[in-house]
Design a binder for these strands. Structure first.
Lengths: 339, 339
DNA sequence: CTGAAAGCGCTTACAG
DNA sequence: CTGAAAGCGCTTACAG
């Protein structure tokens, strides 16, 4: 019922081989026959059967993306970047998201086997052991936001360190000598890098001040608790840098309850630039991550790995972040309405 | 290099036919051979070649999702619902998002042809004409949030009408006799349904009051302008219902500038329950849409359409919404901190 | 430049 | 219950 290459060949009075060559741009076809075949194929609305083609070419023209449950904005921005880049390269995108644990992620990864030419992997459950067990060595893959040092895969990270470093410096430059930090989960790669950025910026630009770190876990609630601790502190802090925006939101609430004004009494900053950041009062100074760029770069990296299987892997690449200054760290009398 | 069904057959000293039957659960195999074959296949890490299987079965076990650029949270929730349901059914998910115009959407739809067993389509660019031109009649498809009346496809909508109706009633019940409405884009299906819900609830529950509608276009900016108009009105309104949350956010800003307090002077409500809704001050009363449910239902509908090609289509199905009451419509002295 | 033929890795009537 | 064989729709050496 569906029209196949044989139908086109019959109609054009040529062999199926010629149809294949004409449609795939082989030079071994006269322009005239190519034209004729192309127009007949178009008239018949012929679409090559992708499975048949994959069977013989060993290519699916599809990239798989393995993603955990992610915050909405991050997820959609990432997919958007990946999707746009894939479209530009004529590649399809097979996604599997929402994996609660390592077993689910493993099952999803295995299920994609043979259906994709390469993989984009972003998952807290992924380590070297996991990949060895679930990803065939022959599958090109790019790891996103991973602590893994691999010679086998490309690794693409957000510049958590640089972003945190720059933000700490911004707060210090603004005259807030003592900057406290609210950390993220101990086992979280992003959190570790951000804390390191904070520590080193403090050591570099405020060598006399001591770094003050309160524990958190990226949740709003943990930010609230950290905020209460900081508000009660005997030596009041002049600036707080939370390792992510949600904790900054929680911290802000604690400060409000404690009667501390932001930014007049304390400056406050977060990390991620989630949409909420600009709508809370005061709008939150934060570090913006170029998520769509991350997705685009990742897609382009797998595409290259697929096209040139032998080439050397890049060292881990890192994507820049931007400091976004808003009212929460800007005590200059300007109104604190949404930016 | 990759292990095929022949390798398993050779190892198990049976024909490839038996391997196929054993692995696919055909009853025509002794339990003992099935066991032996299964364990050998596992040991060899055999994975059936999906293209080869698709070629013969005419099934890809894949659902395509065509999505426009969507607000982050909506997009990720929708994908999440679809993904979870697909996994439960052993189906893969091919996505194509971020289509700026009808041509891009058409190209994406055609590119998926032959790679999917069915389609989920959510796009403002899609109408009957578009589908006739770009979607083969034989492809099962479900339309999400579409005004289309189709006997060929299932249509799944959010209950915009019911949600707006319930919200209007809530505002009236709370004693705000005059409820004004900020509308969305004229050509937007959601916006139309929400406005209808507002009008009919007003007619039903406040027959003496006149419906007051200010135009908007779903942007924050348009909500801001509407808010300025309403604040200056000779007859001050007691409650404002914006057709989406972003406009409510803009309206809130205009009210703040005009010195109007929410909810003491005016109650305010939106629609969508975007994450920002609970973080602005005061937290916004709104209509929550069960987006993940929408995705799950849609996936299950295509799956059914694929399994039972002949069955009658459902009439357009509709998914319920919930009114979420927060501080912006609750002048009861409770603190207006985030809920 | 063009065609006949082999083969990619599966599934499934058809025999036995 | 099991196997030999055909065939799904393509691509690509191999001849000519």
């Amino acid at each position: 019922m569906a029209v196949t290459i044989r139908d086109v060949a019959r109609e054009a009075r040529v062999s199926v081989a010629s149809v294949s060559r004409a449609l795939n741009g082989s030079p071994a076809v006269t322009d005239e026959t190519r034209q004729r075949i192309a127009s007949i194929a178009a008239r018949l609305r012929y679409v090559p059967h992708s499975a048949a083609r994959s069977l013989i070419t060993k290519r699916t023209q599809t990239i798989g993306a393995l993603l955990p449950d992610l915050y909405g904005e991050f997820f959609s921005e990432l997919i958007r970047g990946i999707d746009l880049a894939a479209r530009a390269k004529g590649l399809h995108l097979l996604v599997s998201s929402s994996h609660g644990d390592a077993d689910e992620a493993a099952a999803a990864l295995r299920a994609m086997q043979g259906r994709v030419d390469g993989m984009l992997i972003l998952s807290p459950h992924v380590d070297a052991e996991f990949l060895r067990a679930n990803l065939p060595e022959s599958t090109p893959a790019v790891l996103l936001n991973s602590a893994l040092k691999s010679t086998q895969f490309d690794v693409l990270n957000i510049d958590n360190y640089g972003g945190a470093h720059a933000m700490t410096r911004h707060l210090l430059d603004a005259g807030h000598a003592g900057v406290a930090f609210i950390g993220g989960p101990d086992d979280n790669f992003d959190a570790q890098q951000r804390e390191r950025g904070y520590r080193e910026a403090m050591a570099a630009f405020a060598p006399k001040a001591t770094a003050k770190i309160v524990a958190g876990d990226f949740s709003e609630e943990s930010g609230y608790h950290a905020g209460r601790v900081l508000a009660k502190d005997s030596k009041p802090v002049r600036a707080v840098f939370a390792a992510n925006d949600m904790m900054a939101v929680g911290c802000l609430r604690a400060f409000a309850e404690a009667g501390l004004r932001v930014p007049q009494d304390v400056a406050l900053a977060g990390f991620d630039d989630i949409p909420i950041a600009r709508y809370i009062t005061p709008a939150l100074t934060t570090v913006r991550v170029r998520i769509a760029d991350l997705g685009r770069s990742a897609l382009e990296s797998v595409a290259t790995a697929i096209e040139k299987p032998g080439r050397a892997r890049n060292a881990a690449q890192t994507l820049a972040c931007d400091v976004v200054v808003r009212a929460s760290s800007r005590d200059d009398g300007r109104p604190t309405k949404p930016v």
